[in-house]
Write a protein that binds this DNA or RNA. Structure first.
Length: 275
DNA sequence: ATGGCGGCTCGCAGCCGA
């Protein structure tokens, strides 16, 4: 079982990259952010031809999220937008997957956290309010006590090692209130899958288009996959695939990929552990 | 300090992203 998240910065502009990357990586689930596309213009046909079905929460120009699910894997959409949070902006879509051999469904979410623009701005307040509503929903639904994977563009670099050395640690994407909001998600029991494995130093998932930031590796790690404890024993690897960032006319984000042991193998292991 | 790049739009300039 392979899951991934990718902020594509316009699904229309990035469709060739999406096709190329999906054909090579073949994840079972891909969470997309920044579609910048209303649902009616979502390229469902091209996605279907690649062997994927999709849950889409879109809007014109800005935001927009989707979950692509490999054809043959049964799923249903369970939320579009943060439940009980009044929001004009399309930033969350949630689905349940029925994995073969699994008793409980795997809940997967594609989230596009607000950017926040500048610390102290109106958009910053909206960002913190949005994350608060997300965390409250996770708490209410007790998602941390169920098999749950929250993936997306969090627009938060959780720790100093998640920013290049010159990035201001009190500025947007790294500020104490944003890191506290991220920490609240962890305090619910969710775990940053990337940090469960040894990683190369200065691993980032986003690089500014300007000033040759990618070439100089002046990036941030702001795209994340958080998993609930129920999923933890299945973790096999979590990596950032920087390859598509090298392609022509790339997204400014790279995909983050999570590999889980297949449920059958996990059941067999659990069986042996009991014996 | 600014803008730099790239995507978007009732588009040729301005907004937004991070």
């Amino acid at each position: 079982m392979k899951l991934a998240t990718w902020n594509v910065n316009s699904i229309t502009a990035r469709l060739p990259h999406l096709q190329r990357w999906l054909a090579g990586a073949r994840p079972d689930v891909l969470a997309l952010q920044e579609l910048k596309c209303p649902v009616e213009k979502f390229p469902a046909q091209a996605i279907a031809e690649l062997g994927y079905t999709a849950a889409v929460h879109g809007q014109k120009t800005y935001n927009g999220v989707a979950l692509l699910v490999r054809a043959g894997l049964p799923w249903r959409e369970v939320a579009r937008g943060v439940p009980e949070f009044d929001d004009e902006q399309a930033r969350l879509v949630v689905a349940e997957l029925d994995e073969p051999g699994s008793e409980a469904p795997l809940i997967v979410a594609s989230a596009y956290f607000p950017n926040g623009q500048a610390v102290g701005s109106d958009k910053f307040a909206y960002k913190l309010g949005w994350i608060d509503a997300l965390a409250s929903w996770i708490e209410r639904e007790r998602l941390a006590e169920r098999p749950f994977v929250l993936m997306g563009d969090f627009n938060i670099a959780p720790a100093p090692e998640d920013t290049h050395p010159d990035w201001p640690q009190d500025g947007i994407l790294a500020s104490p209130p944003e890191r506290a909001a991220f920490a609240r998600l962890l305090s619910l029991g969710l775990v940053d899958a990337f940090r469960r494995f040894p990683q190369p130093p200065q691993s980032y998932s986003w690089w500014d288009y300007r000033q040759g930031a990618f070439r100089r590796n002046l990036g941030l790690r702001i795209d994340h996959i958080l998993v609930s404890p129920a999923v933890l024993p299945r973790l096999r690897a979590c990596t950032i695939d920087v390859e598509p960032r090298r392609w022509e006319r790339p997204s400014d984000h790279a995909p983050v990929v999570l590999e889980l042991a297949p449920m059958e193998q996990f059941n067999a292991m659990a069986q042996r552990a009991i014996i």
